[in-house]
């Protein structure tokens, strides 16, 4: 039995149509019209226990909406979802016992009391046995370094400290599934690293399933073995991270440092490259190209013919670029496969 099971999940919202102008306002008052907006459309996937999945997609793609259906906040318009065998929106309390949720900007903690007291209250609320509680607190202290602010009231914590505390709170009762919505947003590099280490540690020790929503590509690289990409409410990609890179990672970047001023580089267009930028301050020309279409050696020799080259680098695609390409032009890679 998989931890998360989703079948043909759909969610539509009815939004009132706002007609502009005074006459429109009166019309709306008398006769309310609604439009149906399909936020999630026929989503299906299975996530087995212990997997760390990157749940990606542009803003407004239906990520948050689908996650909210998974944790029981929203009721689906159609389709099925089970979490640990339970239907979440019908068994909220029972489902809640088995999951942990961290919504990036909003804290789950008691606001006015010290962190340690919040953990004690959660221990009592989730009925966590003493030895397990102690072991978890030790683990959290070890990896996340929370002991430095255990006695501070939650409302006085910095964002990084609060995120760490929220993570601990979500994992204190050893849930089998954890939903993380932008857990590293707004945090500094050191804290982000700690959090990633922490998540890997928890996953290794307890086989916790992690569904992670993020825009931070480092998170994706370091943590996720599988990627599910949501675009326009549907699943655009579902597979291992590596496959995503090989299938869609055809975009490379050539950075050339030149000497002497050049008027324009529009000749590059004739070579089939549309995306290039020249920075006069650093005298660097940055060229993005599809390696299936353009040859970097050809590009470089053309450039050398027009300017004096000081240095150059060729960079493989960033995960961010891959995903951006998938957001904007998902059909293209598939076409290439066919050809």
């Amino acid at each position: 039995m998989s931890a998360i099971r989703v079948r043909n999940l759909s969610k539509s919202f009815k939004r009132p149509i706002r007609t502009s102008g005074l006459r429109g306002a009166i019309q709306d008052l008398l006769h309310r019209r609604y439009e149906e907006k399909k936020a999630v459309d026929d989503l299906s996937f299975d996530i087995p226990q212990g997997e760390i999945v990157g749940y990606l997609g542009p803003n407004g793609a239906g990520k948050s909406t689908s996650i909210k259906m998974l944790v029981g906040i929203l009721v689906p318009t159609s389709g099925d979802v089970t979490i640990n065998g339970l239907v979440p929106y019908r068994n909220r309390a029972a489902t809640a016992r088995g999951i942990g949720v961290v919504f990036g900007q909003r804290s789950q903690l008691w606001w006015d009391i010290p962190v340690s007291e919040t953990f004690q209250l959660m221990k009592y609320m989730y009925k966590i046995p003493d030895n397990r509680y102690k072991r978890n607190i030790e683990l959290f202290a070890d990896v996340l370094g929370i002991q430095e602010f255990m006695h501070v009231a939650v409302r006085q914590l910095s964002l990084g400290q609060r995120m760490r505390a929220d993570l601990c709170a979500a994992l204190l009762h050893n849930p089998s599934i954890v939903f993380l919505d932008e857990p590293t947003i707004g945090l500094d590099v050191v804290v982000k690293k700690k959090i990633r280490e922490f998540l890997l540690e928890v996953n290794a020790e307890y086989k916790t399933t992690i569904l992670l929503t993020t825009h931070d590509m480092q998170d994706v690289e370091k943590l996720c073995s599988r990627i599910i990409l949501i675009n326009n409410g549907t699943k655009a990609f579902d597979g291992p991270l590596e496959r995503m890179k090989t299938e869609f990672g055809a975009g490379e970047t050539l950075s050339v440092q030149v000497e002497g001023a050049v008027e324009n580089w529009d000749g590059l267009r004739l070579l089939g490259v549309g995306d290039y930028r020249y920075d006069p301050e650093s005298s660097t020309l940055t060229v993005r190209y599809d390696k299936r279409e353009s040859n970097p050696a050809q590009l470089l020799s053309w450039i050398m013919g027009r300017a004096s080259v000081v240095d150059f680098t060729v960079k493989p695609p960033e995960v961010e670029d891959i995903i951006r390409a998938m957001y904007t032009n998902p059909a293209r890679p598939v076409l290439q496969e066919v050809l």
Binding site: K68, V71, G72, I73, R92, A93, A94, A96, R97, I99, V101, F103, R106, S107, Q108, W110, W111, D112, M125, Y126
Partner: peptide
């Protein structure tokens, strides 16, 4: 949307609202 937080707890949301303050 902060209300979301109160729906993922092992108790009815009204109770959670009261318990926090």
């Amino acid at each position: 949307g902060e209300f979301d937080n109160f729906l993922v707890r092992p108790y009815p949301p009204l109770l959670i609202l009261v318990f926090r303050q």
